[in-house]
Design a protein around this nucleic acid. Structure first.
Length: 435
RNA sequence: GCGGUAUUGGUGAAGUGGUUAACACAUCGGUUUGUGGAUCCGACACGCGUGGGUUCGAUUCCCACAUACCGCCCCA
């Protein structure tokens, strides 16, 4: 094989692309209902946009960035996630200005890139659907975003979902907790896994997330972030919980939940789905949280924000695993069969007329025999065939046949071209509808 | 970045150190030549991921590389 797609990328072929479109359209409609509007930002940004926001010690920045120097010597990176670019655009285009009603609510969907080892549902080029809302620090907005994520997954027909939430508190709470955690973990330093030894000083919260069994045993008795929240942070989180209750959205509090990206604070959440396709048990399909301070970090005013991201590849896998039906519209109304070279012009005219009239129509382009053309019409599940041969051509007629019943009638070409709907109603009206 | 498994035609796959690489599906053609979904018949890998090596000879053995999948890391 001379050329193959780059490692960790995928060709989305027409059958799959239909499913992708369905997902994208469904998401668009739902987001518009929530009054979120689409924003499109570049697929690459200055490297700093991501490194500053995600955190210099995050794995994304240290080993997963698809970065390169362009011909002008600028250090660029393909976007590894959606939020940083959106925030950059928000600041650069001054969407924080008074003429934009707050909160400013946007959504995006598109490819993201991370240089890592591909696995099921994890590729180097992958796609995310995400939302961001700026300009309100009210817990009501947190809950709207969470509810919208749940709503979306429900629209996609997923079941067996679980919402997990946690809070990282504000800076003050987080700093206090960070110190408490270090104080707790330091005496156990030698017992920690090698990974966690490194984490401890770079980003101690990550130790909580360790999959290592020994680490987990130690972490089990570690102090909880929930005990280190200051008044504001606690009030915010309590409100989020009570609002979720009010909306009858069940949730689980996971005080060990952390984030791979450093910019989060206050509410963070993950929506998980129980499925084997992405590994055992519940795995995360949608994750997000609040990131007050991020706008400022990228040079904007003080402006709170919150959002989530959802992996489309994973979503597809889950939907397929749960046998979700994709409503795919792929009906061929009429297949025009031409018999003999002389008919080719007329059949082309007919398909064009049908298409102009809003029908999905096709014909043969391989100069094949009638039998083969009918076979094709049948395979494509054409509702009708319209056959034109030499004699029909002379008589200015065509044979219209309803494939499901086999009923065939001779109709004037003019009638077909002028109004095929009429022809169907006149000759096939009493037939049973078969779709 | 580390470890494991795999790689045969459009697809699913069988198979062997040495004449013609099973079988099935799909596709195309035919079954008296202007009509579908059935049956029957026929065609369909100048080649067994790529590049080296061992050998008289390799698709089959060895090495490297590529890609896929799984685990770790991390995450969507």
């Amino acid at each position: 094989m001379k050329y193959q797609r780059p490692k960790g990328t995928a060709d989305i072929l027409p059958d799959d692309a239909k499913k992708w479109s369905y997902i994208e359209e469904t998401a668009r409609m739902l987001f518009e209902d929530y009054r979120y509007h689409e924003i499109r930002t570049p697929m690459f940004e200055s490297f700093d946009v991501f490194s500053r926001t995600s955190g210099d010690t995050s794995d994304v920045v240290t080993k997963e960035m698809y970065d390169f120097d362009d011909k002008g010597g600028r250090h660029m990176s393909l976007r590894p996630e959606g939020t940083a670019g959106v925030v950059r655009a928000f600041v650069e285009n001054k969407l924080y200005g008074p003429e934009h009603p707050r909160p400013v609510k946007v959504f995006y969907m598109g490819p993201m890139f991370r240089y890592e080892r591909p696995q099921s549902g994890r590729q180097r080029e992958f796609h995310q659907i995400g939302v961001e809302a700026f300009g309100s620090n009210e817990p009501e907005l947190d809950v709207e975003v969470i509810a919208m994520g749940m709503d979306l997954l429900k629209q996609f027909g997923l079941s067996d979902m679980r919402l997990e939430i946690n809070t990282l508190g504000d800076q003050e709470s987080r700093d206090a907790y960070r110190q408490a955690l270090i104080d707790y973990l330091d005496p156990h330093f030698d017992e920690l896994s090698d990974d966690s030894k490194v984490r401890l000083h770079k980003n101690p919260l990550r130790v909580l997330d360790s999959k290592d069994k020994r680490d987990q045993a130690i972490v089990k008795d570690a102090p909880s972030i929930l005990d280190y929240l200051n008044e504001d942070s606690k009030r915010h989180f309590d409100k989020v919980k009570s609002l979720l209750d009010a909306l009858n959205i069940p949730y689980v509090i996971d005080p060990d939940m952390v984030r791979g990206l450093d910019y989060y604070n206050h509410t963070i959440f993950e929506i998980m789905v129980n499925s084997k396709v992405l590994g055992d048990g519940y795995t995360t399909i949608c994750a997000g949280g609040r990131y007050n301070g991020l706008v400022e970090q990228l040079g904007g005013p003080e402006m709170p924000g919150i959002g989530f991201g959802m992996g489309m590849e994973r979503l597809m896998l889950l939907m397929e695993a749960q046998n979700v039906k994709f409503p795919v519209l792929d009906q061929l109304d009429a297949y025009v069969v031409g018999i003999g070279e002389q008919t080719s012009v007329e059949t082309l005219r007919i398909v064009q007329a049908l298409r102009a009239d809003g029908f999905a129509a096709d014909r043969d382009y391989l100069d094949r025999k009638p039998k083969a053309q009918f076979r094709t019409a049948n395979k494509l599940n054409a509702q009708y065939t319209i056959t034109v041969g030499e004699s029909e051509l002379k008589a200015k007629t065509a044979n219209v046949k309803r494939m499901a019943t086999g009923k065939e009638v001779s109709v004037s070409l003019n009638d077909i071209i002028l109004d095929f709907d009429d022809v169907i109603n006149e000759y096939f009206n009493d037939d049973e509808e078969i779709d």
